[in-house]
């Protein structure tokens, strides 16, 4: 593979961005890239990035699958809020909040509720045929109301050691949250690439009517991805609420759908559906998380993060836009009269 081919790789620019962010942070704060062992746990900038990116990665993974089918799921943030609300109010109401069984039962209930939301979204999109953006807008709006209904408008706080482990615990020296995200990433990769699910999702995303005529259960597949997406958002909701040990229905996962979509797009999956890349989404999530972290390190006000996100979105979109790509390709052709490879 020559340099040109590397530069044309989908993930080249996102990875460059990631490295630049890390280098910039390290220059400003040399200790940033150091990883130390404290109490048998790993600490340091990179570990922190992994831990913090887990929530975004989980949501973005589900979003990748949904986007691959030409869809979009705006309700993920609301699902996170609902998941936290259901789990924490159940734990708070139980006589023994510290028991593992209580926590597991609460999480199972929350997961069931989240799955129901996913089934609802999937039903509207796959069966009723409503545009995904509208169908999921319904729960984006109503979901936080429901979460507040569950918590009675309060920010429910609990003390429960097992639940706290989800976000703050360590296992084998690594943060549990990162491990959960890694596990889900692995399962998703296996599920899509070791079975035929991945190729069928792509086929439905590229050409829904041809897929149906080829005998693909397009409806079931579309339905499934919304359920998967809600399930992953639910797990992300657990991590988020465990992080602060409170269910904040107003702010849990606020705007995460936008960050997740951004992560997917940075990772090279087109919003028009079709081919998707889970690795790309992983890189995208890391870029966004690192961006947020680096900005604090570089001494820029945290609130300005969205300004940088905007610049990243615009840069990525411009690089991917057909017009610019066409320009760049024709310039390349003019410089070197070598036949340009057909982009795969």
């Amino acid at each position: 593979m020559n340099l040109g081919a590397i530069a044309r790789h989908r993930l080249f620019w996102p990875l460059v961005a990631l490295v630049l962010l890390l280098v910039a942070s390290a220059l400003k704060s040399p200790a940033f890239l150091e990883v130390t062992v404290r109490d048998g746990h790993l600490f340091g900038g990179p570990v922190d990035i992994l831990r913090r990116s887990s929530v975004l990665l989980l949501v973005a993974l589900g979003m990748t699958l949904v986007i691959a089918t030409r869809g979009i799921d705006l309700s993920v943030g609301a699902v996170m809020a609902i998941a936290g609300a259901v789990a924490l109010s159940q734990i708070a109401a139980s006589p023994d909040p510290g028991a593992l069984s209580t926590v597991l039962l609460a999480m199972a209930t929350a997961l069931a509720v989240a799955l129901a939301v996913g089934v609802f979204n999937g039903f509207l999109v796959a069966v009723v045929g409503i545009q995904p953006i509208v169908a999921t807008l319904i729960f984006m709006t109503a979901g936080r109301g429901i979460a507040m209904l569950i918590t009675g408008g309060q920010i429910t706080t609990v003390t429960s050691a097992p639940y706290k482990t989800i976000a703050s615990g360590y296992w084998l020296g690594l943060p549990v949250a990162a491990l959960i995200a890694a596990f889900v990433f692995g399962v998703t990769a296996l599920l899509t690439r070791r079975t035929a699910l991945g190729v069928l999702i792509e086929s439905v995303g590229i050409n829904p009517s041809a897929s149906r005529l080829a005998g693909v259960r397009a409806r079931t597949i579309i339905w499934t991805v919304y359920v998967i997406c809600a399930a992953f958002a639910c797990i992300a909701g657990f991590i988020k609420s465990s992080d602060i040990m409170a269910a904040d229905s107003n702010n849990a996962g606020l705007f995460i759908e936008l960050d997740a979509i951004l992560a997917v797009v940075i990772g090279g999956t087109s919003l028009a559906g079709g081919k998707f890349s889970l690795t790309g989404t992983l890189v995208g999530s890391l870029v966004i998380t690192t961006l947020t972290l680096s900005i604090t390190i570089l001494g820029i006000p945290v609130n300005a993060v969205s300004l940088f996100k905007a610049l990243v979105v615009i840069a990525v979109c411009l690089l991917q836009s057909p017009v610019v790509q066409h320009r760049m390709r024709s310039r390349r052709r003019r410089v070197a009269p070598v036949p340009v490879e057909v982009p795969a």
Binding site: T195, A196, V199, L200, E202, S203, A214, V216
Partner: peptide, 22 residues
Amino acid sequence: IIGDLTVRENIVLGLQAERGWL
């Protein structure tokens, strides 16, 4: 045709659909 998929994926799509995704 599923335009962005390969010839191989297009040919086995019918068979695959019949077998289910699992």
